[in-house]
Computed example of a mutant assay.
Amino acid sequence: MLILFKLLGNKRLFFLLMALILFIGVMGFTVGPRVGLSWPEKFVKDTVGFVQNIFYKPAGYIAGFFEDISNLRDLEEENEQLKIALAHYTRDKAKYNYTNAQIKKLEDGLRFTQEQKARSKDDDYRIAHVLSVSNDPTNRTLVIDLGSKNGVKPDMAVTTDKGLVGTVSKVSNFTATVRLSTTLDSKDPTSNAIAATVQGKEDKSFGMVESYDQDSGYFVMTKIKTDDPLKEGDTVISSGLGGQFPKFIPIGTVKSRQKGEFGMTDTAYIEPATTFADWDIVFVVITPEAPE
């Protein structure tokens, strides 16, 4: 008993002993069978929940912020990849369209040469690519990638699958200069007129395409007899007379016909069959008179 009183005299040990007894009592109370939580458990849980709410929410916000930054970086990388893929698609599509257009032109050119070969077995229509264009209104010319090494000679006719383009004026080993038929001028002694006729009326119609009217954009066909059956809408082609231009090259369509200057013959205005623009592929007509 003396020892107990001495211990009780020590306040620290007394409070420790009381806390231990209280803790044992609380443990016994909470461990026993019950329906709900005891008030000490509720207090502890609420305290822990409050502390967790204080610390966990800001931590969650910070973690979410960095996660959003990471997601934005991923989206940015995906966006860059999509841009690159779109650029490749656009480039490949342009190449595909260009290749298809070239194939179509070559197919049309092959069909045209075969048709011309069936009409005249002596003439050889050779494909040439246009290298450059001179838009000088007084001397419009083309430079093509065929020359003397390919059998090309001056004054040979040049055409497209639509119609007459002009004639070869100068030739080098691997290139040639083509003078366009839009430079035709009856007053120019170096300008060669084209003997022409009407398709389907080759034995009944005849005239000379001597010049090109710059104002109207039409060829002028002269020396047409008054009883010639040529009329509006007819297709004018080269007749082959004179030897310079082979037969059957389309020149254009008759837009109008009128009396000539002296009333002895008629004059017709011919809309060109070709557009004289966007040059790419032309054909040089290799004739028997100028063999390779």
Score class of each variant (00 low, 15 high):
T183C: 11
G217S: 10
K187T: 15
F219A: 05
P189N: 11
K187G: 14
T190P: 00
T183F: 08
E202R: 13
M208K: 12
L184E: 00
G207N: 03
M221S: 04
T222E: 12
K201R: 12
S186A: 14
F219K: 02
K201E: 10
E210M: 05
D213H: 11
I224Y: 00
T190K: 14
V220E: 13
Y212V: 05
T182M: 03
F219S: 05
G200D: 02
S211G: 05
S205M: 09
V198I: 14
S216A: 12
K223D: 12
T190F: 13
D188I: 04
T190N: 11
A196Q: 03
D185T: 02
A196P: 02
D188K: 12
N192P: 03
K204S: 10
D213V: 11
P189S: 13
N192E: 11
V209G: 06
T183S: 12
D185N: 15
S191V: 08
A195I: 02
L180F: 09
S216P: 09
G217N: 14
T183W: 05
A195Y: 06
F206V: 07
M208V: 10
S181L: 03
I194P: 05
G217F: 10
D213C: 13
S191P: 10
V220C: 06
K187C: 09
L180K: 04
K204L: 13
G200E: 02
L184I: 01
A193W: 12
L180W: 04
S205H: 01
K187R: 15
D215Q: 15
V198S: 05
P189H: 07
N192S: 10
T222W: 00
D203H: 10
S186D: 12
V220W: 06
G207M: 01
A193T: 08
F219E: 04
S216W: 08
K187E: 15
F206I: 09
Q214M: 10
G200P: 01
T222A: 11
M208L: 15
I224C: 05
A193Y: 11
G200F: 03
G207R: 02
I194K: 01
D213P: 09
